[in-house]
Design a protein around this nucleic acid. Sequence first.
DNA 1: TATTGTTATACTCTATAACTATA
DNA 2: TATAGTTATAGAGTATAACAATA
Lengths: 149, 149
Amino acid sequence: MSDAEPEGLHPSVLEGLIGYHLRRASSAVAADFARAVKGAGVRQVSFAVAAVIAANPGINQGAVGRALGVKRANMVALVNELVGAGIIDRRAARGDRRAFALTLTEEGERRYRSWVDRIRAHEDRLFAAFTPGERTILIELLSRLGEEE
Amino acid sequence: MSDAEPEGLHPSVLEGLIGYHLRRASSAVAADFARAVKGAGVRQVSFAVAAVIAANPGINQGAVGRALGVKRANMVALVNELVGAGIIDRRAARGDRRAFALTLTEEGERRYRSWVDRIRAHEDRLFAAFTPGERTILIELLSRLGEEE
DNA sequence: TATTGTTATACTCTATAACTATA
DNA sequence: TATAGTTATAGAGTATAACAATA
């Protein structure tokens, strides 16, 4: 059935562990994601940051980090990377002089949309053998796990 | 519904991407795994190695690595770690003088069983809100993804 | 006191390339 | 030529601690 034993090995305890399958699936999907956006100058995390900003213009770094489970210390390089690439704009936030308001630039909007297209194509390819119902169920089950942290 | 936006943010494209939910879920489960086995001297990967050896006594490193998607170069430290901890035994393989046959030691069998107990408890706790049917479906869907590599 | 953003740093994980000894 | 195991090393990814400015 499942093929964690490609050389005809005996199945192990791992077959019954959700964590094991999650680990394998997540790393396989991440590897295909990387192939899909190769040369586009974006990674899973930086795309996630761009997506949260796209949906919430003017949001600050800390809020993006909390939404994604990324530590504030690690947000710095991530935001610098996107600012440096001309994807996002970092302006002083009105009302809080400690914070920055993040928005996509015009160029960033275009790049972001092309990333979304590539990534949707990658998921459609990878999940071609899944029915729409199966995809929905998978997302529903996974989203019950990922939001605690 | 889903809570990737804990501060009342607008939902983003990420909500519809399986890869995103996989990433979050996998890292949340891995973090709980780490808490569950804290002090037991085992990690997700080393447990996986032990599990494959437990189910396939006499198997060699390369085969374990291929079964788990771990590069042979990285298997070395992993096997050394388990040998050093007295969990597994590394003997010359009969019939191939390049390879080693790996088995659990007696002590290793005991430790392995206690790890399995802890890990099953961790999964039962984490998936308490999942029905047995949901767990089965989740494993089934995930196992269609993780075995390519 | 708490929070925003920052720097510096360390630790883990994984990938690649080159080597040896056997097959 | 290919495979089993090894070494060395580099690059991600992520975590912690401490700091300045502001709330």
